[in-house]
Design a protein around this nucleic acid. Structure first.
Lengths: 126, 126
DNA sequence: CTGGATCCTATAGGATACTG
DNA sequence: CAGTATCCTATAGGATCCAG
């Protein structure tokens, strides 16, 4: 979408801009791809194996966007068959820690969330 | 959607589950709402003012999901006019730090990303 | 192997109007 | 005030086929 919102308060504008960025980075696959590239250089197919369930189309799209945003570096080796490597850029690396923290948080609290959902769903419809 | 994927490898299964959770938490508005509730108890309308651009419908939906996931506590005061307070639960608080880090990261690197995009778009179409 | 191009569907999410 | 209900559109994203 990439909608630009005009707001008078510059602080608010910054937060809105930040939200847009996070919406991008936090889309369905980006986090998983960044997580997979944590400290590793991977080829397209390797990434596809690593990020289970991603379609070819979305892996391509996600990588393109991450590359455009300067988070991932794409290196094409002029060989046959083609070989393309993906790795995090310096900017991408500034996200590594947080993304890993996020993943760990999700893994560690999956049960809590599942439990909370079960309780919520079991509550009598007010 | 809430698709359950069957995978043999339990480690992979955990990561897939984590991804689903992050997809939820990382949806268009959740991060912003959690960020707004960072250390604060807010009413519906206050939240709406705080999270600029969110529609009433999406604020309600986001809050419901966060409540169901056990991240946000909703307290209804039986008064007229109605008063409903929202705050982070203990579980929600375990996300505060990371969410704030994320927001800060986005604010701090918005320029880098904008620059990267401009460069990418200026590149000759390979 | 690494994609691009197409097609198609489900869904997210905005706008608006109504209610206890 | 704090929602719910309805309607509608854009878009995300999967499946599939093709290509250098």
């Amino acid at each position: 979408m990439e909608v630009t919102v005009q707001v008078s308060d510059p602080e608010v504008a910054r937060l809105c801009e930040a939200r847009q960025i996070l919406n991008r980075v936090g889309d369905k696959w980006s986090i998983a791809v960044i997580y997979a590239l944590d400290g590793a250089t991977l080829r397209f197919t390797e990434l596809r194996r690593e990020v289970h369930g991603i379609s070819q189309r979305m892996l391509t799209a996600t990588l393109r966007t991450l590359e455009r945003d300067g988070l991932v570096r794409r290196t094409v080796h002029p060989v046959v068959p083609p070989r393309v490597d993906y790795e995090l850029t310096d900017l991408g690396n500034t996200l590594r820690g947080t993304v890993c923290t996020l993943m760990t948080w999700a893994v560690n609290h999956a049960d809590d969330i599942a439990k909370a959902r079960a309780e919520y769903d079991a509550r009598p419809a007010s």
